[in-house]
Design a protein around this nucleic acid. Sequence first.
DNA 1: AACTGACCAAAATACAATTATGGTCATTCG
DNA 2: CGAATGACCATAATTGTATTTTGGTCAGTT
Lengths: 193, 193
Amino acid sequence: MSAVDRRKQVLDAASKSFALFGYKATTMEQVAKIANVGKGTIYTFFTNKDELFDEILLSAIMEMKRLAEQELRSDRDFFDNLYRVLDALLEFRSEHELFIKLSQEVRDIGTPKAHEGLTKVENGIVGYLQGIVEQAKSTGEIKPLDAQVVSFVMLKLYVALTTDFNQLHKPLSKEQIKEYMMVFLADGLKASS
Amino acid sequence: MSAVDRRKQVLDAASKSFALFGYKATTMEQVAKIANVGKGTIYTFFTNKDELFDEILLSAIMEMKRLAEQELRSDRDFFDNLYRVLDALLEFRSEHELFIKLSQEVRDIGTPKAHEGLTKVENGIVGYLQGIVEQAKSTGEIKPLDAQVVSFVMLKLYVALTTDFNQLHKPLSKEQIKEYMMVFLADGLKASS
DNA sequence: AACTGACCAAAATACAATTATGGTCATTCG
DNA sequence: CGAATGACCATAATTGTATTTTGGTCAGTT
């Protein structure tokens, strides 16, 4: 059994445990047991619990990028691509066991590391969007504004419509969400005169 | 000393105490002492601590409405009015001792009642905006969309630009914020061809 | 040389004792 | 006589302490 296999064993075990129990309730012993490995072995691959967690988040972020990439179609315009990418990313985020568990953990006991992790994922998304926005800027499809601000707002807007809003009201349908996204991002509220 | 005066004494004392110490650290005895009344007297005007708190929040919300009203100018268009109203409201919210203290309290110890209170204020703002949006809808200045969703997004957008964004980056200037607000709300990102 | 698990200091938890607080009401005061 | 009061009480919050758990190490095993 090669070193690479063991590393993967640990990584898989940790993935499962973090997704199942969250950051805090995942113990290194637990991970070792699931991975069928001595606890010391984990430390030959990862310097500590944090780094192990980071590595798992990083691979989740890369997975998200892969998914987003799939949604990009050169035969569609920027806004259509944007909507499908955002949708894929947010759907992935809201269905992935790990993120669900981490969100609960933040809400219920406020584990700082869990919060940090979710922020890191969010930044990953914004960073990815930023690239798309930059490109749309260079092709002249959108106004020449700061791509960081624009992509940040995009994410916030999407989260506001999909998550924040239905904390207080009836959730919006996918079609409604798409409509509002397009209104605010593409054309604005102003009545076309 | 009339009953009305005593009620106001209590209200003023409670205002001071909530703003100075937050919800949790404000005790009824404390309020009584500041108001120069016996503790029992408080309960002749308010059934409990919660209701006392509610009354204070309500008066803050009404004060905000008053401020917003001042900003409305019939010689300006909807978007200009909107920006100035939002600005006044958010500035008030971010400078009012009570709200600063409650925000800290939520962040540091997560007092549910403090969180609830801030949400109530936020809902007050959205409710107020809703009225303005309805009116702009009826005059045909903006597209005929659900006013509740639109005003909710407006607040979220403003908070994203003024508060959320500078948790991670350099704060935006007032001019930049205004520019971005107008882009997303009025005309959208799409390059004017 | 790779791997392991007993071991340790430090952190988290559980529990008990103590204190503080919201709310009441018999008594006082104007 | 009715409005005002503060001692009083049940319960919630806090503090202090004993106990357990956990991240990380490293001498020894495979």
